[in-house]
Amino acid sequence: MRENGKRKKRASLSGATSLSGGTKILTYISLAWALLVALMPLVWLLLSSFKEDPLARPGFQLPESICLDGYISTFRDLHVMRYFGNSMVIAFVSVVLSILMISMSAYVVARLDFKGKGIISILLYSTMFIPPTALTYPVYNLVNRLHIYDTRSALILIYSCSGIAISFFVIKNYYTNIPKEMEEAARIDGCGYVQTWWRVIFPIARPGIMTAAVLAFLNNWNEYYWASLVMITREKMTVPALLSTFTTAFRTNYNGLFSAMVVIILPPIILYCVFSKFFVEALSGGAVKG
């Protein structure tokens, strides 16, 4: 924030050159584009969710009359809060577990030299490309063998382990950017390895770690494949199960489906708005300087 303010002042100081003008135009074009791209599906979704029959009055037409049936049935009949609760607990716990574990290993790989470092990176990269069909049977079997079939623990286990590659590279990248002096200073102060990581590096890399956490959370929030595979008790199901109830073998209730889609993204939006401060704004200036 601070530095942005400074930059603005500087721009006026140095006089509006043609370059600043170009920058300005480009900035506004980018912002307009971003807004357009994001709003198109959102407005469409919101409009459709108010239409009694979205297919009968398609596109961006305004609804004839506002129909809240989908929202009403989502909240009244479908136990939304139960799904939210399940998803929150499962997504949150798995994010904490996986991010903690990965921020540890990523630190070691990013900052220390040892044999086999390259292999670890390659192995983790390779996990991104294994198709879920190849994972299905071994994981299903594992879940059964641990006797956690149809429990939330099963999903927590799966989510904590899946997506490790993405989190790993995002976090490792942040570690790499931290100046070496920071660590050295800590070590001179007498910090051990663990302390250096916990007291110095972890807080500095917090923005990166939080970003990775947000990404992981969003993935877990929407995950359906594993959820429908290892959970059978409906009381324990996660949020995407809300959507499937609107689609039967013969027809789809689009009003309900779109309403539920809107409802589903509300919690992540709220969480994001609350937390975005922590990982975008809070880090400029202060953090890296310590």
Binding site: V89, I90, V93, S94, L97, N144, L146, H147, I148, Y149, D150, T151, R152, S153, I156, L157, S160, I232, T233
Partner: peptide, 27 residues
């Protein structure tokens, strides 16, 4: 809070048979 079986298994995936069994009755 997520259930007695949550903690043990998710971290280590071991030694969690006891509490899990009740929940896995469906299995």
């Amino acid at each position: 809070g997520c259930g007695n079986s949550g903690a043990g298994q998710a971290t280590g995936g071991t030694a969690a048979e006891e509490p899990a069994k009740e929940e896995a009755a469906a299995e």
